[in-house]
């Protein structure tokens, strides 16, 4: 079992307290909302696409340290990526937080996102880490409505 400081690494705490790209993008090309009814977390993601690339991405909302840090680090990670690259990154990230570092392929290429590898030891917290990613995917796919962690 990983220790508490492995879950709440310095970088996570830092991003949760000073989230990057925590703002609204006016006239965004795409936006979507996410909601976790179990804990009341809400997030809205804004994406500006240029030539199928993420030119700008931001988020707003309320959530726990894991979800806020995940959103913050995600915005840094997907900027400049193509839509397909962003989707692939989500798949890897999802694998990381559900299966852990060893099971996840290409752990190294995840960069800063690897800080969430210990979330896999806390099944109750996986949704906190992935809500914003589901919301991003929904925004990229142009889906209307709110993404919910509960179907």
């Amino acid at each position: 079992m990983a220790g508490l400081s492995d879950l709440y690494q310095e970088m996570v705490v830092d991003h949760s307290k000073r989230p990057r790209n925590f703002r609204k993008i006016e006239d965004p090309v795409r936006t979507a909302s996410g909601y976790n009814p179990l804990c009341g977390d809400r997030v809205q993601v804004f994406v500006k696409l240029e030539n199928d690339r993420v030119a700008d991405v931001s988020f707003q909302g309320v959530g726990c340290a894991i979800s806020t840090a995940s959103a913050s680090i995600m915005t840094e990670a997907v900027r400049g990526k193509t839509v397909v690259e962003a989707r692939t990154l989500f798949e890897r990230f999802h694998e990381l937080v559900t299966c852990g570092e060893n099971a996840a392929r290409n752990g190294a290429s995840l960069g800063k996102l690897a800080v969430f590898s210990n979330v896999s030891h806390y099944p109750a917290r996986v949704k906190c880490a992935t809500l914003v990613w589901h919301t991003l995917r929904s925004a990229l796919e142009g889906d209307e409505g709110t993404v919910s962690t509960e179907q």
Binding site: L4, L7, C39, V62, G63, C64, A65, I66, T68, R125
Partner: peptide, 27 residues
């Protein structure tokens, strides 16, 4: 102040303390 109940619950769990976090079925 400034700390989400889920994070409180996870840290307390690590101390062996079981509390509930969330809306307690009373939104």
């Amino acid at each position: 102040n400034g700390i989400h109940p889920h994070d409180v619950g996870t840290v307390l769990d690590y101390e062996g303390i079981a509390v509930r976090t969330g809306h307690h079925c009373a939104q």
